[in-house]
Design a binder for these strands. Structure first.
Lengths: 106, 106
DNA sequence: TACGTAGTACGGTCGTCATCGAACCTTTCG
DNA sequence: CGAAAGGTTCGATGACGACCGTACTACGTA
């Protein structure tokens, strides 16, 4: 518990994260919902466990978009891919952005 | 001084502003630049004075998008339309969002 | 009145992206 | 081994939106 094992999939470093890309990633309603779920979850969330009404391959697409934007970190755990929110990195890079966005969800 | 005259064009009230719409509005690079200009400007900015490289009618489009999202307020001043950032409303509704976004611009 | 200024409205084009289904891969387990 | 679980990849489709130019309106002024 707590510590997640497995390899981290490629992602931008903290200082490579660009606000424009992050905003584009968060602008989609499905992805915004995913981010909100991650923010409210103590545990990492596998691709198939997001509560969204889109097909499997679409979830794959959204997870990749969020990862490449630097919003989430994805680890390979067995056959599963567990996502976590990169809260520390986002807070360091764009202080207040994440909490501001999350305050407006639901 | 400071006070801007003229009629305010239709816009959402503070509590009608939705985070999803705001994010979509900010996700465009041209609009993000406009918002940054407004944040750095003491005076309202007329449509024709934004430092962006798009045509007139496109600026109209972006100004309308930002206004309808609740990001800016637009007043009719003679033949001009002066835009200002709705900083108070955005800060009240989504604390930290605006400053977080602006910290990542330029 | 005629003109310049500031911006909108309209019609159209083009590119991007969200979505899906089907096929495929890999690990786990009976 | 065979099958199920969990995701990815591919190709296609459909919708939205950024952009432009032209035509138009409203206001101010020489």
């Amino acid at each position: 518990m707590g510590t997640v094992t497995g390899k981290v999939l490629p992602q931008p470093t903290r200082d490579e994260i660009r606000v424009e890309t992050v905003l584009q990633a968060l602008a989609d309603p499905v992805r915004l919902r995913m981010v909100a779920e991650l923010a409210n979850s103590a545990e990492p969330i596998p691709c198939g466990h997001f509560d969204v009404e889109v097909g499997k391959s679409t979830v794959t697409h959204h997870v990749r978009t969020l990862r490449e934007a630097g919003v989430i970190e994805v680890r390979q755990v067995g056959t599963a891919r567990a996502s976590t929110l990169r809260k520390d990195d986002l807070d360091a890079r764009f202080p207040g952005l994440l909490t501001g966005v999350l305050s407006g969800v639901d």
